[in-house]
């Protein structure tokens, strides 16, 4: 006596489906694109600190505000302006053929490159800070960056698991990358999430929802003391 699933197994295990003749070229093409893209990506990482106009302007405004408020209090302590972190990934957004892998395979690389804050060069120098209205300052560059519980891979996993792809975007095959900044408070909670690179309202809302619902982070440290740190993560919407 034979059950049909055994028959299915037998017949389907090594079954070969016919591909369109054009597929081979399409594949090789895609592979080549990907390799080019991977190379380019590496060079970008080396020169990581580009200065996209939008970020520069926003930062400029924020810093001048903080400068103003500072001048009244402690004029001596001049904040140094760090290189403005990049907000725009150098990766083209139309990444059809460029690499699902980078995103799916949890390339820590992909995300870590894009998370800005931290250090310039290799020495963990405290370079700039930004004064908040009250006593709680927010560091932009810290010795110990805050960390999602479980690390970057866990963060990716969290995003992947909890993302609710907006239906209308799915139906219309819309994809994109939203970048959200937020502050990791001293107790690890997340406050003030803001979309700094928007795609559309639905993606933005979903990105904000994901960020706001994150579990508590391990807070960042500066000279051994926990501190508030501004952090930014890219959230990829891929079909």
């Amino acid at each position: 006596m034979k059950q049909f699933e055994d028959i299915f197994k037998e017949r389907l295990e090594g079954y070969e489906m016919k591909l369109p003749a054009s597929d081979r070229d399409a594949f090789l093409n895609r592979k080549a694109t990907r390799e080019r893209y991977a190379r380019r990506r590496r060079t970008y990482i080396n020169i990581a600190v580009g200065i996209p106009a939008a970020a520069a302007i926003i930062m400029g405004i924020m810093l001048s505000i903080s400068l103003l408020s500072k001048q009244e209090g402690a004029p001596s302590e001049q904040p140094l302006i760090a290189d403005v972190p990049k907000t725009e990934s150098p990766a083209p957004i139309t990444v059809d053929d460029a690499d699902i892998e980078e995103d799916i395979m949890a390339s820590t690389e992909g995300v870590i490159d894009d998370i800005w804050v931290e250090f310039i060069d290799d020495d963990l120098e405290y370079i700039t800070r930004e004064q908040m209205p009250d006593e709680n300052e927010v560091s932009m560059v810290v010795e110990d960056a805050p960390e999602f519980p479980g690390g970057t891979n866990a963060l990716l996993e969290y995003l992947r698991k909890n993302m609710i792809y907006p239906d209308s975007c799915r139906d219309n095959n819309i994809q994109g990358r939203v970048i959200v900044t937020f502050i990791v408070e001293k107790d690890g909670s997340i406050t003030g999430p803001v979309v700094v690179k928007s795609v559309n309202r639905l993606f933005d809302a979903e990105a904000l929802r994901l960020v706001s619902n994150m579990p508590k982070w391990k807070p960042g440290k500066q000279k051994g003391e926990v501190c508030r740190v501004k952090y930014s993560i890219p959230i990829n919407f891929r079909l």
Binding site: M1, Q3, R11, L12, M17
Partner: peptide
């Protein structure tokens, strides 16, 4: 559990489409 011997006559592509 039933005898599904008859499924043997189905072409693999049809099986695949069913799945």
């Amino acid at each position: 559990p039933q005898d599904d011997e008859d499924a043997d006559n189905i072409p693999a592509q049809v099986m695949l489409d069913m799945v």
